[in-house]
Design a binder for these strands. Structure first.
Lengths: 140, 140
DNA sequence: GCAAAAACGAGAATGGTTCTCATGTCACTG
DNA sequence: CAGTGACATGAGAACCATTCTCGTTTTTGC
């Protein structure tokens, strides 16, 4: 199940800021929230404001370079789309665990994989551009 | 890809309030937000406060009776887990469209199905209880 | 009935995200 | 070089869905 992010990438010409943001995400071993990125980049030689962080995260997301998922707490976590990670998320404490490999290739989740985790439900969502927005963006 | 919600259901003995909430979700043709449900039930003969709506939504979710997904806007939408719906979500305008059938059985999304929608990335998440929380809940 | 426990809800608090707008930056031009 | 316009930036305010607080009401167990 490969989402054609490369094909979807409209304009890979990133600004320095966008590149800085993307590299921070790629360098991180885990997903980062907007707040995390802000705190991280605050310490760099070229600090980035919170508004700019969110602005560019949305832009990168619309370009298919960054994916976003929401924890039960409502916090949004970002990661580069090149990482094909999937997670088990606890609806009680909100903790998440990365699955060792993409489960879509093995839909009947084996007991061993779950390792005690009790699945209650799943979500499968596709993010992208609807025809109306593609058309509007092309017209601009 | 059937999530064993029934097996996971710890205590299907719902209170009147929980039942009212679940029935409202089942009766609705679309997913509803917490605010939607509050507004809807406000007009019923037994109105429900916002705090109670969210309290029970979380409870029903932990029981695997209700699923929740987040729009790019951050708004959370709820639906009964018995409905196996999946969506295309636009990262620009946030609109969502229900897929005609569960795409997990047809992973290579056919062009016709997309109908002009440009997928940028997808998310696949499992929600449930981690071992620690199962243990803690069992102990209580 | 009656007391203890649980459920309830109005309104305040929380906190992540977005918006506003004044300022900064940069590429051009003449 | 100023001059100029378009765009990027960020501090802080605004927003708003959700959660928390806490006094009241309802239910439960006996």
């Amino acid at each position: 199940m490969n989402t054609p992010a490369t094909e979807a990438r409209v304009d890979p010409r990133l600004t320095a800021r966008q590149d800085q943001l993307l590299q921070a995400l790629q360098a991180a071993t885990t997903e980062l929230s907007g707040q995390d990125l802000h705190a991280l980049l605050r310490r760099s030689s070229t600090p980035m404001g919170l508004a700019t962080v969110y602005r560019h995260l949305r832009q990168l997301q619309q370009w298919g370079l960054v994916r976003c998922r929401h924890l039960p707490s409502g916090e949004a976590l970002f990661a580069p789309t090149e990482r094909d990670d999937h997670h088990l998320t606890c609806v009680d404490c909100g903790s998440t665990r990365r699955l060792p490999h993409c489960p879509v290739h093995d839909l009947e989740l084996p007991r061993g994989e779950l390792d005690g985790f009790l699945p209650l439900f799943h979500t499968l969502e596709f993010y992208g551009l609807c025809p109306a927005c593609r058309q509007r963006q092309a017209a601009q």
